[in-house]
Computed example of a mutant assay.
Amino acid sequence: MFKRTPTSRPVERQDSAEHRHGTAAVEFAICLPVIALMFMGSIEAASMIFLKEALTVSSYEGARTAAKYDSETDDVVAKVEAMLELRNVSGAVITISPAEVSSAERGDQITVTVSIPCNANSLVPLQFFNDQLITVQSIMVRE
């Protein structure tokens, strides 16, 4: 087998502890911005998912209101705005087709579209979704 000679042991460096602290500092300096960017990006992505869900709910509630036989356009807009206000969403553009809900006859489709710019509702200042527009549409049949 192998015989171990006194010279086959590795020579230990006396400054290895200092060398390791320097390596850790360099690794930290390189990895911290990447980790921070990933963290802020995931917060922003979750915020945009919440924003889209808020638009979906408000558009659906508006379409439900519009589908009722005695509803008016002002009722639909008020319902959508109330749902968005509950979720602290600002800057929404609400489009209803036909424009006058009361003129729609039974069996007609009523479309409620809610659009919002991501800039106005971003949580992270880096603006990952800069100049993006989220649009949600709900269609229901008039009662």
Rank of each mutant, 00 (worst) to 15 (best):
K3M: 03
R4W: 00
T5A: 02
S8T: 00
S8L: 00
P10H: 02
R13Q: 10
R13I: 06
R13A: 02
D15K: 11
S16D: 09
A17S: 03
H19C: 15
T23N: 11
A24C: 06
A24M: 08
E27T: 11
L32C: 09
L32D: 08
L32H: 13
A36I: 10
F39H: 10
F39L: 15
S42N: 12
S42M: 13
E44W: 06
A46D: 11
M48A: 07
I49K: 10
I49S: 11
F50H: 10
E53L: 08
R64D: 08
K68C: 05
Y69P: 00
Y69R: 08
Y69V: 02
D70T: 10
E72S: 06
T73S: 04
D74Q: 09
A78F: 05
V80T: 01
E81M: 07
L84Q: 03
E85F: 03
R87E: 07
N88Q: 00
S90H: 00
G91A: 01
G91K: 08
T95N: 06
I96L: 07
P98H: 06
A99W: 09
V101S: 09
S103C: 15
S103I: 13
S103V: 15
A104Y: 03
E105P: 13
R106C: 14
R106M: 14
G107W: 14
G107T: 15
D108S: 15
I110C: 15
V114F: 01
P117G: 11
C118A: 14
L123D: 07
F129C: 10
D131Q: 15
Q132S: 11
Q132G: 08
T135F: 05
M140H: 01
